[in-house]
Deep mutational scan, measured.
Amino acid sequence: EVTIKANLIFANGSTQTAEFKGTFEKATSEAYAYADTLKKDNGEYTVDVADKGYTLNIKFAG
């Protein structure tokens, strides 16, 4: 089991951190699915992958 950390960075400057656990593939998939649910209210997003994929910096356009 691994932990994927998602740093969520919103257009208004606020930030939030979420963690997803499971296999690497499952946790990564859940992180992207979570970002997709936030897209409606926060706009499109870009992802900067860090720490060999264990950290995702997800920035929303607003």
Rank of each mutant, 00 (worst) to 15 (best):
L38K: 09
V2D: 05
L56A: 01
F60L: 01
V47I: 09
E30V: 06
N7P: 01
G62S: 11
A50Q: 14
I4F: 02
E19P: 04
V2Q: 07
L8F: 15
E30M: 14
I9P: 00
A18V: 14
I4S: 00
A61F: 12
D51E: 11
S14W: 14
A35E: 00
T23M: 09
V2I: 11
I9M: 11
F10E: 02
F10W: 11
G22S: 05
S14M: 13
Y32E: 03
K59V: 11
G62N: 12
G22Y: 02
N12I: 09
T23F: 08
S14T: 12
A50F: 09
L8Q: 01
K26R: 05
I9Q: 10
I9T: 11
Y45E: 00
Y45N: 01
T3G: 04
A61N: 14
E25L: 06
N12T: 10
K59I: 13
E44Y: 08
E30N: 13
A35G: 02
V49P: 07
G43T: 02
S29F: 10
A11G: 10
G43A: 03
T55M: 10
G53M: 04
A35S: 05
N42S: 10
F20D: 00
A35I: 10
D41F: 10
I9Y: 15
D48E: 15
E44R: 09
K52E: 13
Y54S: 04
D41Y: 09
Y45G: 01
K39Q: 08
Y32S: 03
V47N: 02
I4K: 00
G22C: 02
D41C: 06
K52C: 06
V49M: 12
E25D: 11
D41E: 10
V47M: 05
N42W: 15
E30Y: 11
D36V: 05
D36H: 07
F60N: 00
T55E: 07
F20H: 02
V2S: 07
G22T: 02
N7S: 06
T15I: 14
G43H: 02
T3P: 04
N42T: 04
F60H: 01
G13E: 08
D36W: 04
I9K: 12
K26P: 02
K52G: 12
V49G: 04
A27D: 00
K21C: 05
K52Q: 13
K5N: 11
L8D: 00
F10S: 03
A61T: 14
A18Y: 14
G53F: 03
A33W: 06
T37M: 15
E30G: 07
L56I: 12
A35F: 13
A31C: 05
T3K: 08
F24M: 14
Y34N: 03
N42I: 06
N57F: 10
T55A: 05
T37N: 12
G13H: 11
T37Y: 09
K5R: 13
A61Q: 11
D41T: 15
K40W: 08
E44F: 09
S29V: 10
D48H: 11
G43N: 03
V2T: 10
E1W: 06
T15D: 08
G62R: 10
T37K: 08
G53E: 03
D48I: 14
V49N: 05
K26T: 15
T17P: 06
G53L: 03
T23P: 09
D36P: 01
E44Q: 10
Y34R: 04
D41M: 13
K21W: 11
T23Y: 15
K21D: 06
F24S: 04
S29G: 13
T46I: 14
A18G: 06
Y45C: 02
N57W: 13
F20W: 07
N7K: 12
D51F: 04
E1N: 06
I9H: 11
T3E: 06
S14R: 15
V47Y: 04
K39H: 04
D36I: 05
A18W: 14
G53A: 04
A18K: 12
G53D: 03
T23Q: 13
F20M: 02
T46N: 08
Y32I: 13
Q16P: 02
Q16S: 10
T46V: 12
Y54P: 01
K39Y: 06
A33S: 11
A50P: 04
A50G: 10
K21E: 08
A6Y: 01
G13W: 09
V49D: 04
F60A: 00
N7F: 14
K52W: 08
N42Y: 14
V2L: 07
E44T: 13
E44N: 15
